[in-house]
């Protein structure tokens, strides 16, 4: 059991190191995130200016600015879209290598992604957050315990996001080319998770509907936990439920894929 955990821990570490190799790319990505953060702030501030302050959907201006910087940082930690590594491996047939290893492929990829997310937390999350906290009105949690909840919530967000990306990749086993489905996800996923505007700006029926999906759990929930908007326990429970559901679904689909479908290539 110890060896088993050690194995996935090492894979996570390898994930961290893999991404840590490309520091310039991380730097460039962070710069882009910051620029987009500034653009989003100027647009969202206009909303508040137009209605003369106050709050929109339960967020005041400070909370909205905090939302923007947290979101710009979380974006690369959660990674809605990104390297289509597994898709390519399935399409080219390289996945046979992954399948001839004595591991659980789903768990191995999750471990690697958590390693990646750990690196992203340092390289991609901290800088936008620091800029936001130092140069803008920023809403820190009133209780240090909230930071721990936020960390847990961000972790669950990564698990949910990885679960969805894993399922999308697995669709390659049947579709041979996942670009259609992942394109759709690329367009819709992040918006429904609350990347462009806070989900509480949405009409209330849409917000209710979104609660039946995993999307808010990937970005809006950790942010809401941080700015203490809504009940942290409920947000975390919703995320945990989806994290478990998606992980189980990934395992089931993987098993079916392996047993049913042709592995590509000679």
């Amino acid at each position: 059991m110890c060896a088993l955990i050690g194995c996935y821990l090492r894979i996570a570490l390898a994930g961290f190191r893999r991404y840590a190799t490309y520091r310039q790319a991380a730097l460039a990505g962070t710069a882009t995130n910051v620029v987009f953060g500034l653009i989003k702030i100027s647009i969202l501030s206009a909303v508040y200016a137009a209605q003369g302050g106050g709050s929109v959907g339960g967020y005041d201006l400070t909370m909205t600015i905090t939302y923007v910087w947290l979101g710009q940082g979380l974006l690369s930690v959660v990674q809605f879209w990104g390297d289509a590594d597994l898709d390519t491996r399935i399409r080219t047939g390289d996945v046979v290598i992954d399948l001839t290893r004595p591991w659980n492929l789903g768990m191995a990829l999750l471990a690697e992604d958590l390693g990646r997310a750990a690196f992203a937390s340092l390289a991609r999350f901290v800088p936008p957050l620091a800029i936001g906290a130092l140069l803008f009105p920023f809403r820190w949690p009133t209780d240090p315990a909230v930071l721990a909840f936020f960390a847990l919530s961000a972790l669950l967000a990564v698990v949910i996001s990885q679960g969805i990306r894993f399922l999308l990749s697995l669709s390659t086993f049947w579709l041979l080319d996942p670009r259609g489905v992942s394109g759709l996800y690329r367009v819709g996923g992040a918006t429904l998770a609350g990347l462009e505007i806070p989900l509480n700006y949405f009409p209330s029926w849409a917000q209710t509907a979104l609660w039946f999906t995993p999307f808010p759990g990937m970005m809006q929930s950790p942010i809401d936990v941080f700015v203490q908007h809504g009940s942290a326990a409920a947000l975390l429970a919703h995320q945990a439920l989806w994290a478990v559901l998606l992980t189980v679904a990934g395992q089931v689909v993987l098993r079916r894929a392996v047993h049913k479908v042709v592995v590509q290539g000679g």
């Binding site: 090492r10 894979i11 390898a14 190191r17 190799t21 290893r101 004595p102």
Partner: peptide
């Protein structure tokens, strides 16, 4: 992306 030895080390844990 990793040095060769690290792949070996990782495989030690996987196997």
């Amino acid at each position: 992306d990793l040095p060769l030895v690290e792949s070996f080390e990782l495989l030690r844990h996987i196997y």
